[in-house]
Design a protein around this nucleic acid. Sequence first.
DNA 1: TTGAAAGCGCTACCAA
DNA 2: TTGGTAGCGCTTTCAA
Lengths: 366, 366
Amino acid sequence: MSDTKGSSGIKEIARALNVSIGTVDRALHGRAGVSEKTKTRVLQMAERIGYKPNLAAQALKLNRKLSIAAILPKHISHFFDPVRAGICAAAAATVGMQVSLEFHEYPRLGVGDVDAFKRATERHYDGIIFLPGDTRKFDSLIRTLSRNGTAMMCVGSDAPNTDRMGSVAAHAYVSGAIAAELLAMKLPQRSTVAVFSGDLFTMDHAEKLRGFAATLAVQAPHLMLLPALESHEQPKQAYQQALALMKGKDRPQGLYLSTANSMPVLKALDELSLLGKVQIVTTDLFQELIPLIEFGKVMATLYQRPYTQGKVAFETLMRHLRGDDKSHPSIRLAPHVIFRSNLPLFSSQIIDTDEEEEVETKMPKG
Amino acid sequence: MSDTKGSSGIKEIARALNVSIGTVDRALHGRAGVSEKTKTRVLQMAERIGYKPNLAAQALKLNRKLSIAAILPKHISHFFDPVRAGICAAAAATVGMQVSLEFHEYPRLGVGDVDAFKRATERHYDGIIFLPGDTRKFDSLIRTLSRNGTAMMCVGSDAPNTDRMGSVAAHAYVSGAIAAELLAMKLPQRSTVAVFSGDLFTMDHAEKLRGFAATLAVQAPHLMLLPALESHEQPKQAYQQALALMKGKDRPQGLYLSTANSMPVLKALDELSLLGKVQIVTTDLFQELIPLIEFGKVMATLYQRPYTQGKVAFETLMRHLRGDDKSHPSIRLAPHVIFRSNLPLFSSQIIDTDEEEEVETKMPKG
DNA sequence: TTGAAAGCGCTACCAA
DNA sequence: TTGGTAGCGCTTTCAA
């Protein structure tokens, strides 16, 4: 038994001390215009009666307005749609702040992204949630908007060494490490493995490769890693690379597909009748992947929890704009490892993005 | 670009329609005393100008008070402490509701639990968060308190077929299923496996066993399951059972320790020099388990996310008491599968339970 | 240094 | 069926 979060209130304190509520307010907030003596008296009394400010009243009075934008690609909708949904959900749950939320879309990373940012600059948003792509292009954009007074919140990847407000992403290094450990489980013999990546200039992708390689070296030295293949999110290119790789002389027995662009690779393997013979760990979860996991063609996928990413990104941004948190947090979610056995917990959410973190089900009848 | 959550307000609508704000309020809330005609006019206008109620003002006016209690065992603190922390965190984040939160503790399931409930009955809480143990004892307690007007929220397990308000727990069936799939990965040959359980009259424990057995049957028919061992959370008993089992003639090559009471079993295996030779999947995460995972003695543990359970339980209870949700939700969290490679993401939180869901780190230098 | 009072947007009550 | 208004707990401004 402990912790009684009492009610009381500012005027409770005022009455007990025979001062006005104005004085109490000034004392509590360390504002000017209170004698040191009354201030301590107020603070003590507040402590004593367990004063907790009424956040609703505070919010009502302060009545702040915030304009937020989310600038995200249309492409890879199985990832960014839930991100958007998470942002929406968090925005809807906001209390005591009038938030105007606008979504901007551009076709894909590298196509229309700069334009979208240009447009956003003119609108002078209080905060922007966005996916940082290639450092060489984005870093200056971020700086410009930050200078402009906009809090820049990264989601899905990070842009360190900029003045972005913060970032939320799946822990990329650990994702790579898990992939390595999983492949090692299924490949106890001396074998060769390969990584399909997107663009090693994107922070997130480079980190995954690092985690993968580092973990192989320590936990599975019997596995040899081939040079990483960059497909730049081009399906065609990934497909060609996969065909070439699997037809080549040192065909890997294990694959880590570290981006969402995994279907072309899986298609190539299917055509070569290699699905099920090669151990595969993928990234994200989408409709086409479900049967492959169900039938054991893909041993596991690393789910980056896009809904939660969006939700947390928005919440963190709000906390920052409310002034509660002046730090620049790098939040890294633990990816979920999805196997055949826990797939049902996640696959239902692909249709119904409403809940993500929690799954609501009837228990299977025993 | 879409979705502009505008500001406006109730009097905006009133002015536009030349009616009083009282009328608008009645129309918006479907209260009696408005003609059908004005009602539709108001609703349309609200839609048109994108009316969003100011939740702070609403909360301030309504000014509801709620008293909540959490009645949880002291034992298995590595699980229930984070549950309590999650409850606290959710309570602290509450806006627009004066919540008084009280914690009650009893030694362990079966010891002092009934007394704790008795005491709680007298206090007439609006809601109680608790761990449902043995059905035969708890069901009537739950019913009594529910009749009494208290919303009964289960955490950690469930009590179906009662009028509990809802439940939050890790998905037990899926936990068992994952354990089976993991063991099958490491045991490709014909082998024997065993499950250590707590009490099969506890819903959660029975479900884990069901999931495990069902998954073995379908995905790994080459693994033979020995009869489940119930240790009733008694360390001594678990230790003895483990010794007997591992010295017996059909010694299993794989173990699923489905409760927090896993250390005695691991100790027994250690003494028999079997650690590392037998594949083991455990449950929960605590200090002593960390090195065992790090050194590969335990292949994986299924983390039931106690902090999130507490947080979600409280949030769900609040939503119910606010009247937003009249359903009786059974929320099942996806357990996290923790291997050596993603252990660091979780082990840091054992000391610092502040954040659980999100991990905040500096990226490892590349 | 302090007190008094207006008013944030909403709900609820009373009067018309 | 409607309009008017008090007041939720707090911040802030103006006056003392």
